[in-house]
Simulated scan of single mutants.
Amino acid sequence: MIDKLKTNPKLAEFIRFIIVGVLATALHYGIYLALEYGIGLNYNMAYTIGYLLSFIFNFFASTFFTFQSEANAQNGIKFAGAHLINYFVHMFLLNFFIFIGIPGGIAPVFVFPIAIIINFFMVRFALKK
């Protein structure tokens, strides 16, 4: 497996993306649950705050670890643009799943897999030359 990762840099990059994505998603979901159920904040507001905090972690982890590029203003702007689109995908899906009757505490579990796939391609485009 290690040899396959050494000879296939795109596979290694994707695995690093998964690692960062899992950590960012866990951070996002943990903050969301703590704010909504811990202090009773509106689910849209709690989700947004969790998204913003995980975004900061995600930018630095994606830049340095996943795509091994540099953290500069240009990459930051492109990354933020990709995540702005992704944020609206998240919010649409979250509200859709809640609208169809999925409880707010579980709805993000359905949002994350869809949004993460879309996000991979947008972030890769933003941070890779």
Rank of each mutant, 00 (worst) to 15 (best):
F14Y: 06
I49A: 07
I85G: 02
G21E: 01
H28Q: 11
I39V: 15
I100E: 10
N95Y: 04
T48N: 04
S62G: 12
F88L: 00
G40T: 07
N42Q: 15
G21N: 08
I98K: 00
I98W: 04
E13T: 08
Y51L: 11
I39F: 08
N75C: 10
K78Y: 09
H90Q: 12
Y87H: 01
I19L: 14
G38T: 06
G50T: 14
F64D: 14
I31Q: 02
N44H: 12
L84E: 08
N86H: 06
F17V: 10
I77W: 08
A34Y: 00
F60K: 04
N86R: 06
A80V: 09
A24H: 00
Y32Q: 08
Y37E: 12
A82I: 07
V89S: 00
H90I: 01
G30Q: 10
I19P: 09
T63F: 04
T63I: 05
F64V: 13
M91R: 05
F88C: 03
A24E: 02
A46G: 06
N42Y: 13
A46M: 07
F55H: 08
T25L: 01
L27G: 01
I39Y: 06
Y87P: 02
Y87A: 02
I18N: 00
G40N: 11
L84W: 00
G38S: 08
L53M: 12
Y37F: 15
N72L: 07
L23C: 07
L93H: 07
Y47S: 06
I31M: 03
G30C: 06
L93S: 01
A26K: 10
I77D: 09
M91I: 00
F99S: 11
F55M: 09
F57N: 13
G21A: 12
Y43P: 03
S62Y: 04
I15A: 13
R16Q: 08
N42A: 13
I39S: 06
Q68V: 13
Q68T: 09
L94P: 10
F14C: 01
A24W: 10
G21Y: 01
A61T: 12
F92K: 04
Y43H: 10
V20R: 02
H90W: 09
N95W: 00
F79N: 10
G76E: 09
E13Y: 14
L23D: 03
S69I: 11
Q74Y: 14
S62V: 11
